[in-house]
Computed example of a mutant assay.
Amino acid sequence: MLASILIALVALLHLGFMYLEMVAWEQPLGRKVFRTSPEFAAASKALAANQGLYNGFLVAGLIWGLALGEGGFSIKVFFLACVIVAGVFGAVTASRRILYVQAAPAVLALICLYAGL
């Protein structure tokens, strides 16, 4: 049960990232969250939307795994691992806070999943 709640939280986080990257990238909220200037946001809009689309795929995979219940164990593991890898890569290449905002919740969810919690 705890693992499912955490997986749903990870999915919601990524749904939020998708919104920020695909819809709000050039808006004040998007620029504030990602600490970008209006000029940078305008110049990188297409790249951000692409990144948002990938976050949407992660959301879809996590929800798919949750919908399958116990039968979705492997799917949950795969998509949580994708989130963790993306979070570590983002922390190394963009901002260390991505490790805490993106990767850490997925690691916690994965631990709970394997522990049967």
Score class of each variant (00 low, 15 high):
A46F: 03
A11H: 07
S4E: 15
I7V: 15
V10R: 08
G56N: 05
G56M: 08
L9D: 06
P38C: 11
L15F: 07
M22W: 02
Y54K: 03
N50R: 11
S44N: 13
N55D: 01
K45T: 06
L9Q: 05
L9A: 14
I5G: 03
E39S: 11
I5L: 13
F40E: 13
A49N: 12
Y19K: 12
E21I: 04
A24Y: 06
M18R: 09
R31Q: 13
P28Y: 04
M22I: 00
S4V: 07
E26F: 01
F34G: 09
P38Y: 06
K32M: 12
M22D: 02
S37E: 00
F17I: 08
S44M: 11
A3P: 04
N50P: 00
T36Y: 04
S4I: 00
E21V: 11
A3M: 00
R31K: 13
T36W: 07
A8W: 02
G30A: 10
Q27V: 05
G52Y: 00
I7D: 05
L15S: 09
A49M: 11
A11F: 09
L29F: 10
R35N: 13
V33C: 06
T36V: 14
A48M: 07
M22Y: 00
L47C: 09
L2E: 02
G30S: 05
Q27W: 01
A41K: 04
Q51T: 09
A49D: 00
L47Q: 14
E39Y: 00
G16I: 05
R31M: 14
L6Y: 04
Y19E: 03
S4A: 13
M18F: 10
A43K: 15
V10D: 08
R35F: 05
G16E: 01
K32Q: 12
A3K: 03
G16N: 02
L2R: 12
P38I: 04
F40R: 06
A3E: 02
A49C: 06
F34W: 13
A24P: 07
A43Y: 01
F34P: 05
A43R: 14
Y54N: 10
F34M: 13
N55G: 01
V23G: 00
E21T: 00
V23A: 08
A11K: 09
F17S: 14
A46Y: 01
K45D: 06
R31C: 09
L2G: 06
S44A: 14
A46G: 01
T36S: 12
P38A: 10
P38H: 07
I5C: 11
G30Y: 08
S4T: 09
I7F: 04
V10W: 12
L12S: 09
E39K: 11
V33M: 12
A46S: 15
K32C: 04
L47S: 15
A41H: 02
A49Y: 01
V23W: 03
L6E: 08
L6D: 01
V23N: 06
W25E: 01
A43P: 01
L53N: 12
R31I: 07
Q27L: 14
W25H: 08
T36A: 02
I7R: 05
Q51P: 02
H14R: 11
S4P: 00
E26R: 15
A41D: 09
N50A: 14
P38D: 06
Q27M: 03
